[in-house]
Design a protein around this nucleic acid. Sequence first.
DNA 1: TAACGTTGTTAAAACGTTTTAACGGCATCG
DNA 2: CGATGCCGTTAAAACGTTTTAACAACGTTA
Lengths: 342, 342
Amino acid sequence: MTETTKRPEKRVTVIDVARAAQVSPGTVSNAINGKRPVDSETRARIEKAIATLGYVPNMAARGMRTGRAGTIALFSSMPTAVAAGASKLGFMMEIAASAAQVALRRNVALVLVPPIAAPADALRNVPFDGALLVEPAEDDPFLDLLSARAVPVVGIGAAPRAGMPCIDLHYRATAKLLTEHLLSAGSRSFPLVIGTSARQYYREFEEMYCTILASAGLVPRVIRVDEAHGEEAGAAAVEARLAEDPALDGVLVPVDALATGVMAGLRAAGRNVPRDVRVVTRYDGLRARTETPPLTAVDLHLEEAAERGTLALLDMIEGAETPPVRLLPEPALVLRASSAPE
Amino acid sequence: MTETTKRPEKRVTVIDVARAAQVSPGTVSNAINGKRPVDSETRARIEKAIATLGYVPNMAARGMRTGRAGTIALFSSMPTAVAAGASKLGFMMEIAASAAQVALRRNVALVLVPPIAAPADALRNVPFDGALLVEPAEDDPFLDLLSARAVPVVGIGAAPRAGMPCIDLHYRATAKLLTEHLLSAGSRSFPLVIGTSARQYYREFEEMYCTILASAGLVPRVIRVDEAHGEEAGAAAVEARLAEDPALDGVLVPVDALATGVMAGLRAAGRNVPRDVRVVTRYDGLRARTETPPLTAVDLHLEEAAERGTLALLDMIEGAETPPVRLLPEPALVLRASSAPE
DNA sequence: TAACGTTGTTAAAACGTTTTAACGGCATCG
DNA sequence: CGATGCCGTTAAAACGTTTTAACAACGTTA
């Protein structure tokens, strides 16, 4: 009765196949991997032996010889308070889904490394030939760990360090899109709410926002909120701002977890969105879409970003020096009720 | 200038560490893995050597010796037309996010194997010690491939084969919940729309639905739709049904991709939801939440299911005969506008 | 005091594959 | 006709780790 759960006596190896097919192990390897020509009649014998014996190559042994793990890893170091919760790592998982499919088509599996308390331990025990890094911060703990492993890395977002290949998520263009949208929707006093950590993302948003507001003759106001505190921090920030500036008529809050916080804060303060205050965010995920009213957001072409990033990484792993990273299409506004014109 | 991208000359091995610390490779191994006691002074020397040399253990070599890949795989064989698109593998990815975190905490990485054209190829090249199978069909192609690999497997949904450990997603209870909800909301003529493939899921839904309707003195009607055709099939099915039964006042359509199709079909036929027709679905994902109106769905406790499944699988990999799989909490209705009482 | 278990260490074996160097045979090119 | 190159194959080496068997030294138990 324990037959089904019992471990197999002995693993079938390439040696067993070779014996059954009356060839040497090397020939079996060549037949499987096609590195060198094998007589078609011999190949047929080998394939038959593989089938009847139920041979499955041992990936570890292969990997040891070839130096390839056969996997790439997807990392995200977003603070869990932002990444988890309602959207359940939405941003990362959207990338993961596409990346996994693309990689699998090239016979590489994707391993998922969500934010975790002990990144070093994680890294030490996860086998991978290359890494995809989702919106890395400049002081990202994964950066050092990855460079210690000397594997190719591709960022998705903006390069935190010079020389790191990266799929550009067009932070500037996105910031411009959202800021100009709020302006053209009629908002005149709207702060930018961003996180406190050191990210290219925040810096470029801030820069673009300030530039546009200044040239429109408006006063930019940047509110920094610790992302680790999640929604509540967003709510508190907007409530405090409302106290200072009752004329506030818009909020540009790119981080979606903070955006839902801002919405809650506005509700608590009795403001109607979009009538009194218009709110826009960046990532068009579950949070933005299921907020009431749903939030205007941006189509970042994440799927395409994931595909290109994955292909670039695979090329690098295979030795390409300069992966051909073409630009993504420009980000596009996804207009929703939270900033609908009156 | 190509310094940064250049491959390292030579990998640092346990032998280098041993030499630097003036011990044997075996002792280094023991220091790292703690299998056998190592003198604290010796251990300090070894750790110093590891740090200065930047040693990173070679997972492939370790795996070859220990027989562990250090990963588990998450498979889903849902037809892509159902799984992809708007929800972007939502169901699977929700499980993946939780499973990845749980596994990582036990130093195991999760590899993602989304539905793909050639499952056999995928399997052959993906290293893993065990598998999580999301709602496997009875004729699931992964089942044979996995049993050929002789690794532990845990299903999430219902066991397609006797003896396979499984986290029960409570198909019957879910079907009961939704059917009784429609009844108590006032619907009297509502078909069940399910897919054509052979799934426990469909069978149990059908059975429960028919039983309840019969005992309520109503006529059950089951509509089978090829899931591979996605939303359009759902729309076509409901339009055809409306032609036969203009008094239709509800639809129970557990597959979310078909549910959005049904919604489109109802819109096309000029029916108002929920006034004329109430619609309910099962998976409370992006599709259900962003439909207009949002769809009543079920909280399946997927996160918890993923965690338990992962832990059970890890226990099995480590040799536990009978993984302690406790039951999930009962599914709970998530009431939304698509079936709101009048 | 003898037997025994524990600690700390090592040399050598083992894991299963791919790659290397080599070989004979055969065709092609000068 | 000799040199060259490709085809098909093999034996042996190599990949980097963990495990095994063994040993010395030391306490503890009988």
